[in-house]
Design a protein around this nucleic acid. Structure first.
Length: 845
RNA sequence: GCCGUAGUGGCGGAAUUGGCAGACGCGCAUGGUUCAGGUCCAUGUACUCGCAAGGGUGUGGGGGUUCGAGUCCCCCCUUCGGCACCA
C-alpha cells in the first residue's frame, strides 16, 4: 500500500512555481496593454529601456534570459519609481539561418521565421518579461518594416550616401555572399569562424559611413554612459590617422606615386619607395617587365595562401626591386622603387616612403636587402649615437634635413606638410581604417534593394543604368514562392516575375536589383520603430521619436560593439541630417552584459553544454531562474551557469513564502507603527538599510547579485526574529510593514512570485504599478556601532559604542579595553588615530 | 606590438570614498526533524601551528606611499577581449 504524498501546493513550507506562474501569466496575457507606456503628454519623466532584439532562431538561450532579465528588472523598477516606461521587443528576423532551415526542412523562410517568433514570444511570456507586446513587437522581415529600409535607402541615394561601385569584396563561400569588413573576423566569416573569406571583384552598393568618420570618432568622447571597452574598440575600428601625402615621380616613366606618411619629418631619411603588389603603378611597371610581373604575381599568390591558412600576420617581409627610380620632392634625390608584400593596398595610398632609420619594419626590410639606412632624427642633445631604428620622442630634433634641420619633429611635420602643399607635390591629410559599408548581399531572405536597371536607357541614364524607384513603388515585396537552392548568385535573379519590371521613368523594360540588403541595415534603426510601430506613412512620427529618444538604457552583448553599435550610430546621424530626429546618438547609456557560459566554455550544441531555459522553468520556475541569473554574478561579468546554485534561490523564495503566509493576518494592523519595541526597531533598521541599498544600486551600479544577497540577509534576520514576533515583542504593524516592503523589493526580480504575495497580503492594485517605497534614513541608522581597534594596524578587538559617539568617547573606550591594555603593556603609545564612526588605531613602540 | 578588461577560500562571488578581507549563496562536515528525501532546521567551514586558550600567514608576484592598502603609485606575470606589417 502506498501512502499518498502531500500535494506540493498544500505544503506550507513550499510554493508551487508552476501553479503561481501559470495563474498570473494567464491573467497578464489577457490584458494586451498591460505594459504599454502612457501617452507622451502624461507629465511623467520618460524612460526608454531597450534590450538588443533577438534573432528568432526558435529557441531562447540562457544569454537571452540574462539579457532580458536585467532589462526587465530595470524597466519594472523604473515603473514603480513613477517613470513613463517604454520597454519594447522585436525580432531581427532576416538572415541566412532561415534559408538554411528552408533547405534542410523544405519550409519557406517566412513560415519558419514567423513560427519561431511565435515560439520565442511564448517563451518570453513564460519568463514574465514586461514588454509592450501589442504596441511594439517589430519583426524586420515583414514589409511593414522593411519598406522603410527601402525608403531610407532611397533617401540616402538622393543624398549621395548610397552608391554603387566596383571593388574588392570579402566573399564567404558557405554563405554564398559578400560580407562587410565588419563581418570579417580574423580573416574568416563572422558566421563561419573556420572559413576564410576570399577576395572577389564585384560591383556592389555601399553606404557612405566614412562621411561621418570624424563625427563617429569625436562623439565617442561624449558617450560617457558607454563602457570604455566599447568606445576603445570603435576608436580602433575607425582608425583615424593624421599624416601627409607626398608625390614621388618615377624618373623615367613619369608616373606619380603618392605615398602616405605620418612622419613626413623623416623624409630626408627615405631610401626607397615601396609599393603594394596590387598598386596601379606596380601593374604599369609589370606590364612592361615580364620578370617583374611574374614576381608580383607570386607575391600575391603567397599572400592569398597565407590569408587562407589564417597566418597573414606571421608572413615574412619580402620584396622585389622594379629597377625604376622615383624622385624625393624634398631632396631631389632619386630612390629605388620596390614592390613589397608588407604594404597594404587598401590602407593609405598603398605606397610608402621607406625610412629604415626610424621605422622598425622599414629597418628590417632594408637590412634584408642591403638598402641604405640614413638617420635624420636625433634625440635632443645627441647627434651621433643612438640605436637604430630610432622612434622619435617628442623632444627629438631633425639633423641633416636641409632647411628643416634643428626643428623639433612635431613642428617640422606641420611646416613640411604646408611646404608640400605650397609647392603642389603633397598635402596634409587624414586617413581612416573605416571603409564604406558594403550592404549588398547575394541572398534571398533580406530587404530587396529598391533600384532597377533600365535596359534601353533614357535621358541621363545609359542603357542598363541605375534608376531609383519612386517612394510610391514601395514596398518592393520579397516574392514568397521561391525555391531555395545552393546555387551561386542572387536567388531573386531566378524569379522572372520579380526580376522583370518596367522603368519608372521611361516605362521601358527594366530589371530589378536582385541583391538584398545586409541584415545589419534592419538593426540599425529598429529601436526608432518601437516608438511608432504601426505608422504606415513614415518610419516613425518625428515627435514620438523626439519624446522617447535617445534610449535611456540600451542593454546587450559586447559582441556587437563594432558591428551593430557603429552602424546604428551612423544611421542616427543620417536620420538627424534628414531632419527626422534631433538626437546625435541613439543611446545615452549602454550596458554590455557578460556571456553565459557552462563549464568554462561558451554554450554550444556541438559541445553539448547547452542549458535550456524551458527546462529551468520546468524545474525551478521562471522567478527562481531569473533571480539566479542575476544572483550568480554581477551582470557585466561572464556567468558560469552552475545549476546546483539555483537551489539557494529556491530555498530563499520558499522561506519568504512561508513567512509571508504565516504573518498574513498582521496586515490588518498596517500603519500602526507608533509603539515601537527594540527588536522591532532593529528589524525596521535592517529593512530600510536593504531598501536604501537596492534603490541606490538600480540607479547605476547594477550589482543585482548583492541586491539579492541583501534581500537574503533581511529574510535571514526576519527568520531569526520569528520567536520574537510570535511572543508579541515586535508590533504587528511593523511585521506588516516589513512584509509589504519585502514584496515590493522582490517585484522587479521575481514578478510572478511578488504578484502572488502582493495579492496574499491584500496589496491594492497590481504590484507592477505600486509605488517603490522610500528608504527612511532615520530608521536605517544604527544606534550602536562596532569600532575595530587596531594596534599598529593589526586588529585586536571590536568594541561597541553608541552611534554618534565623540572622538574622545571612542578613544577612552578603546584604551580601556582589556585586550588592548594587554597588548600595549610595556610599550609606549606614540599616537592614537581615531576615525570617527570607523576605527581606532594605536601606534605603539 | 598597441588598446581595453580582469586576477580574492573547494566553487560563484562580497568589501561604492584607503579603515574588521571572505557578506550572500553553492559545496562540504557534524547534529536534529522525517517511514522516506534532490526536504526542512541548527552549528561549523580562508590557510596554518596548537588538545585548547592563543598565535602566525593571507586578496597573481616584487617594490613603494600611509598610523593603516584587495583598494593609491612604480615594475613584472597571467587571463579574457579588440586591433594589428595601419606607414
Amino acid at each position: 500500500m502506498q501512502e499518498s504524498v502531500p500535494n506540493e501546493s498544500e505544503r506550507p513550507d513550499r510554493y508551487s512555481p508552476a501553479e503561481i506562474e501559470l495563474k498570473w501569466q494567464t491573467l497578464w496575457d489577457a490584458d494586451a496593454s498591460l505594459y504599454a507606456p502612457e501617452p507622451v503628454d502624461c507629465g511623467k519623466p520618460k524612460f526608454f529601456c531597450v534590450e538588443m532584439f533577438p534573432y528568432p532562431s526558435g529557441q531562447l538561450h540562457m544569454g537571452h534570459v540574462r539579457n532580458y532579465t536585467i532589462g526587465d528588472a530595470l524597466a519594472r523598477f523604473m515603473r514603480m519609481r513613477g517613470y513613463n516606461v517604454l520597454h519594447p521587443i522585436g525580432w531581427d528576423a532576416f538572415g541566412l539561418p532561415a534559408e538554411n532551415a528552408a533547405l534542410k526542412n523544405n519550409t519557406p523562410p517566412k513560415q519558419w521565421t514567423l513560427g519561431n517568433i511565435a515560439d520565442m514570444r511564448a517563451q518570453l511570456r513564460r519568463f514574465g518579461t514586461s514588454y509592450d507586446w501589442a504596441g511594439t513587437d517589430v519583426a524586420t522581415c515583414l514589409p511593414e518594416y522593411y519598406r522603410w529600409n527601402q525608403w531610407f535607402f532611397l533617401k540616402m541615394y538622393e543624398q549621395g550616401l548610397a552608391y554603387r561601385k566596383q571593388g574588392k569584396l570579402n566573399w564567404c563561400n558557405l554563405c554564398q555572399t559578400v560580407l562587410a569588413n565588419e563581418q570579417v573576423i580574423n580573416g574568416c566569416c563572422w558566421r563561419h569562424e573556420d572559413t576564410p573569406v576570399e577576395q572577389r571583384d564585384m560591383t556592389q552598393w555601399y553606404l557612405r559611413i566614412t562621411k561621418y568618420a570624424d563625427e563617429l570618432l569625436d562623439g565617442l568622447d561624449k558617450l560617457d554612459g558607454w563602457p570604455e571597452r566599447v568606445r576603445t574598440m570603435q576608436r580602433n575600428w575607425i582608425g583615424r590617422s593624421e599624416g601627409t601625402l607626398v608625390d614621388f615621380k618615377a624618373q623615367e616613366t613619369g608616373e606619380t606615386i603618392t605615398v602616405f606618411t605620418t612622419r613626413v619629418d623623416t623624409i630626408f631619411g627615405a631610401t626607397s619607395v615601396q609599393l603594394a603588389p596590387e598598386h596601379p603603378v606596380t601593374k604599369a611597371f609589370a606590364a612592361k617587365d615580364a620578370t617583374l610581373a611574374g614576381q608580383v604575381e607570386e607575391m600575391i599568390a603567397q599572400q592569398k595562401q597565407a590569408r587562407e591558412e589564417g597566418d597573414i600576420g606571421s608572413i615574412e617581409k619580402h620584396g622585389v626591386p622594379t629597377g625604376q627610380f622615383a624622385v624625393n620632392p624634398f631632396t631631389g634625390e632619386p630612390v629605388p622603387i620596390w614592390v613589397a608584400n608588407y604594404i597594404l593596398a587598401d590602407y593609405g595610398t598603398g605606397a610608402i616612403m621607406s625610412v629604415p632609420a626610424h621605422d622598425e619594419r622599414d629597418f628590417e626590410f632594408a637590412e634584408k636587402y642591403g638598402l641604405p639606412v640614413k638617420r635624420v632624427i636625433a634625440p635632443k642633445g645627441d647627434t651621433e649615437i643612438s640605436e637604430l631604428p630610432y622612434t622619435a620622442e617628442d623632444d627629438a630634433v631633425l639633423i641633416d634635413s636641409g632647411e628643416w634641420t634643428s626643428l623639433g619633429c612635431v613642428e617640422a611635420q606641420q611646416k613640411m606638410a604646408a611646404f608640400a602643399k605650397e609647392k603642389v607635390f603633397g598635402s596634409p591629410t587624414v586617413t581612416y581604417r573605416l571603409k564604406d559599408w558594403g550592404v549588398s548581399r547575394q541572398r534571398y531572405w533580406g530587404t530587396p534593394i529598391p533600384m532597377v536597371y533600365c535596359e534601353r536607357g533614357h535621358e541621363g541614364v545609359e542603357p542598363g543604368g541605375v534608376v531609383p524607384l519612386p517612394e510610391s513603388a514601395l514596398p518592393v515585396v520579397l516574392p514568397e514562392n521561391i525555391e531555395i537552392t545552393q546555387q551561386g548568385g542572387s536567388p531573386l535573379g531566378r524569379v522572372p516575375e520579380f526580376l522583370n519590371t518596367t522603368c519608372p521613368v521611361c516605362g521601358g523594360p527594366a530589371r530589378r536589383e536582385t541583391d538584398t540588403m545586409d541584415t545589419f541595415v534592419d538593426s540599425s534603426w529598429y529601436f526608432y520603430r518601437y516608438t511608432d510601430a504601426k505608422n504606415d506613412k513614415l518610419p516613425f512620427a518625428p515627435e514620438k521619436a523626439a519624446y522617447w529618444f535617445p534610449v535611456d538604457q540600451y542593454i546587450g552583448g559586447v559582441e556587437h560593439a563594432i558591428l551593430h553599435l557603429i552602424y546604428s550610430r551612423f544611421w542616427t546621424k543620417v536620420m538627424r541630417d534628414l531632419g527626422l530626429i534631433p538626437n546625435n546618438e541613439p543611446a545615452t547609456r549602454l550596458f554590455t552584459q557578460g556571456m553565459v557560459i557552462k563549464d568554462g566554455a561558451k554554450m554550444s550544441k556541438s559541445k553539448g553544454n547547452v542549458v535550456s531555459p524551458d527546462e529551468m522553468i520546468g524545474r525551478y520556475g521562471a522567478d527562481a531562474t531569473r533571480m539566479y541569473a542575476l544572483f550568480a554574478a554581477p551582470p557585466d561579468r561572464d556567468l558560469d551557469w552552475q545549476e546546483e546554485g539555483i537551489g539557494g534561490v529556491t530555498r530563499f523564495l520558499n522561506r519568504v513564502y512561508r513567512l509571508t503566509l504565516k504573518y498574513r493576518d498582521a496586515h490588518a494592523y498596517a500603519n500602526t507603527l507608533a509603539a515601537q519595541s527594540v527588536p522591532g526597531q532593529k528589524l525596521l533598521r535592517k529593512l530600510h538599510q536593504t531598501l536604501a541599498k537596492i534603490t541606490q544600486d538600480f540607479s547605476g551600479r547594477w550589482h543585482f547579485n548583492t541586491c539579492i544577497a541583501s534581500l537574503m540577509e533581511l529574510v535571514n534576520e526576519i527568520q531569526s526574529a520569528e520567536p520574537l514576533i510570535d511572543d508579541g515583542e515586535i508590533p504587528l504593524g511593523t511585521v506588516a510593514e516589513v512584509f509589504r516592503t519585502l514584496t515590493l523589493m522582490l517585484a522587479p526580480f521575481a514578478p510572478f512570485f511578488a504578484a502572488e504575495l502582493w495579492s496574499q497580503i491584500g496589496g491594492r492594485g497590481a504590484v507592477l504599478h505600486a509605488a517603490w517605497p522610500e528608504a527612511d534614513a532615520e530608521l536605517a541608522k544604527d544606534d550602536e556601532i562596532e569600532i575595530p581597534v587596531q594596534v599598529n594596524g593589526k586588529l585586536v578587538v571590536v568594541i561597541k559604542v553608541p552611534a554618534g559617539s565623540s572622538e574622545e568617547t571612542i578613544r577612552t573606550a578603546a584604551l580601556a579595553d582589556e585586550k588592548v591594555i594587554a597588548r600595549i603593556d610595556g610599550k609606549t603609545v606614540v599616537k592614537v588615530i581615531v576615525v570617527q564612526g570607523k576605527l581606532v588605531n594605536l601606534v605603539v613602540k
